[in-house]
Design a protein around this nucleic acid. Sequence first.
DNA 1: GTACTGACGAACT
DNA 2: AAGTTCGCCAGTA
Length: 113
Amino acid sequence: MAPITEAQVERVRALVASIPPGFVATYGDIAAAADLSSPRIVGWIMRTDSADLPWHRVLGASGRPAPHLATRQLENLRSEGVPVHDGRVALRSIRFDFGALPPPPASTTNLGE
DNA sequence: GTACTGACGAACT
DNA sequence: AAGTTCGCCAGTA
């Protein structure tokens, strides 16, 4: 099987889109939820196609976004009610739990796994 | 095919 | 606490 498939990309995009306002998720969490081999794949997907996604809700494991986007991320997050402290987000307080989400019906989402 | 890079992460110093 | 190194995987040169 190919290193990565469109299904994986769509899965990641869906996960990011499922993050509710006021919450954030890490690349590692998304990678795990999407069953990816490495969090770098998530970063690759984000930089490739994140135009219609709430990419500002995606942070690194340190609770801090990438340096070149940090300013923009923190500003957007703060607008959503996310408590930002010194360019940092309290991950352990607002980290989104994908495991708490209800599983989608496989009948209509058979991605041929 | 090898080397370098990069929206990452954990371990080590 | 902060900086460095290694592992990870896809893309590009």
